[in-house]
Computed example of a mutant assay.
Amino acid sequence: MRIAFMGTPDFAVATLDALVEAGHDIAAVYTQPPRRAGRGKALQPTPVHLRAEALGLDVRHPLTLRGADEQAAFAALALDVAVVAAYGLILPVPVLEAPRRGCLNVHGSLLPRWRGAAPVQRAILAGDDETGVGIMQMEKGLDTGPVRLEGRVRVDHKTAGALTGELAALGAKLMVRVLAHPDDFAAIPQPTDGITYAAKIEKAEARIDFAQDAAQVERHIRAFNPAPGAFFEHGGERIQILAASIETADGRPGEVTDDMLCIACGSGTIRPLLVKRAGRGAMPTPDLLRGFAIPKGTILA
């Protein structure tokens, strides 16, 4: 098929690679514009931008698709279908309707649960046992379109990073299956019950609330790994916890209950296993404590 691919983060790269490997004609790749990042604040192309350039594909990064000129340029591609994966821009109706078979989206949840921007993190935070990825026929509403095919995975004790990678690989395979035989996969309307929304992750959410029970705190840590990183503050520094186990001990919420950084929660305790100081790499907790004492009895926030 003649396809426009529309995606931005690492999650989308697997689908782009799968489309190329399957032999589809990628007429253009749309992605978010480069953003300033890093210490030097240099412009950084998106992961999809970098991969598309490496593949020798035409890359476009408009700020919006609402303008008549951009919509005309998109329509001029004469597409069979547009494939969308975490693009990050709203597709206006003229864009949705331009391809002969419309626009198909790789969405990282079992719709209608977790419509919206951060389905993987919200599934972990909510303690869902299972999540998945669906191939959705896009329409005007936010993730409201009918689903053509979906796959399921266990959440288990995965981080957001690990779960995102698993869903990305599965979504790529499902998209290739649907495109190979599109008429074999009927568009099934989403149920009208069980709708939840996965709001965009705000950096302020990453601060750990030790008043929550230990199971919630541990999920919080996994949901924000690798970004933005669940953290507490001590000694004027922000310390991220990247992995932790759940234990039982008595103490006030936020109290360090031993000399190896076991931290009391609203109920139960957590023991950080992997941590990170600002500007440094991840390290086991004993390595942190050798150069950054957090004694028993300290109250963390």
Score class of each variant (00 low, 15 high):
residue 267 S to E: 14
residue 127 G to D: 08
residue 63 L to T: 08
residue 53 E to L: 11
residue 237 E to N: 11
residue 120 V to R: 03
residue 87 Y to L: 10
residue 223 A to G: 11
residue 52 A to H: 10
residue 79 L to P: 08
residue 69 D to N: 00
residue 290 R to P: 00
residue 83 V to P: 00
residue 17 D to E: 15
residue 299 I to M: 15
residue 12 A to W: 05
residue 137 Q to V: 02
residue 258 D to E: 04
residue 72 A to D: 13
residue 93 V to C: 00
residue 112 P to F: 04
residue 173 K to H: 11
residue 264 A to F: 05
residue 126 A to L: 09
residue 232 F to I: 00
residue 120 V to Y: 02
residue 130 E to D: 11
residue 33 P to M: 10
residue 262 C to V: 13
residue 25 D to L: 05
residue 298 T to Y: 04
residue 17 D to T: 02
residue 247 E to M: 06
residue 218 E to H: 14
residue 120 V to Q: 07
residue 150 E to N: 03
residue 195 I to E: 14
residue 301 A to I: 00
residue 140 K to E: 15
residue 138 M to Q: 03
residue 258 D to Q: 07
residue 38 G to Y: 06
residue 138 M to D: 11
residue 115 R to H: 07
residue 93 V to Y: 08
residue 215 A to Y: 10
residue 140 K to D: 13
residue 9 P to I: 11
residue 2 R to H: 13
residue 276 K to F: 04
residue 101 R to D: 15
residue 167 L to M: 06
residue 10 D to G: 00
residue 110 L to N: 04
residue 80 D to L: 08
residue 27 A to F: 07
residue 247 E to F: 02
residue 93 V to N: 04
residue 190 Q to W: 12
residue 60 R to L: 14
residue 151 G to Y: 12
residue 159 T to M: 05
residue 32 Q to W: 09
residue 235 G to V: 03
residue 67 G to S: 12
residue 227 A to M: 06
residue 260 M to K: 14
residue 134 G to V: 00
residue 149 L to Q: 09
residue 149 L to D: 07
residue 64 T to C: 05
residue 4 A to V: 10
residue 294 I to K: 06
residue 174 L to T: 02
residue 20 V to E: 15
residue 140 K to M: 03
residue 23 G to C: 02
residue 250 D to V: 06
residue 5 F to W: 07
residue 230 A to F: 10
residue 29 V to N: 13
residue 262 C to H: 13
residue 128 D to L: 04
residue 223 A to E: 14
residue 193 D to C: 00
residue 265 C to Q: 03
residue 80 D to A: 05
residue 83 V to R: 02
residue 180 A to Y: 01
residue 25 D to S: 14
residue 4 A to I: 08
residue 297 G to E: 05
residue 7 G to E: 04
residue 12 A to E: 07
residue 205 E to V: 01
residue 215 A to S: 14
residue 266 G to K: 13
residue 287 D to H: 10
residue 276 K to W: 03
residue 179 L to K: 07
residue 123 A to Y: 05
residue 210 F to R: 10
residue 31 T to D: 09
residue 80 D to F: 10
residue 2 R to G: 11
residue 111 L to P: 09
residue 10 D to R: 13
residue 171 G to M: 04
residue 48 V to I: 10
residue 198 A to F: 08
residue 279 G to R: 02
residue 33 P to A: 12
residue 4 A to M: 04
residue 3 I to Y: 05
residue 134 G to M: 02
residue 178 V to P: 01
residue 276 K to E: 15
residue 244 A to Q: 09
residue 178 V to L: 03
residue 103 C to V: 14
residue 262 C to R: 15
residue 178 V to Q: 03
residue 192 T to N: 11
residue 18 A to G: 07
residue 197 Y to Q: 02
residue 152 R to G: 06
residue 103 C to L: 03
residue 189 P to E: 14
residue 112 P to S: 04
residue 126 A to E: 15
residue 164 T to W: 04
residue 200 K to F: 06
residue 25 D to Y: 09
residue 99 P to D: 03
residue 128 D to R: 08
residue 80 D to V: 03
residue 51 R to P: 05
residue 287 D to V: 13
residue 281 G to N: 14
residue 242 L to G: 13
residue 188 I to L: 12
residue 90 I to M: 13
residue 102 G to A: 09
residue 106 V to H: 10
residue 146 P to W: 05
residue 118 A to F: 12
residue 207 R to W: 00
residue 164 T to V: 00
residue 57 L to M: 11
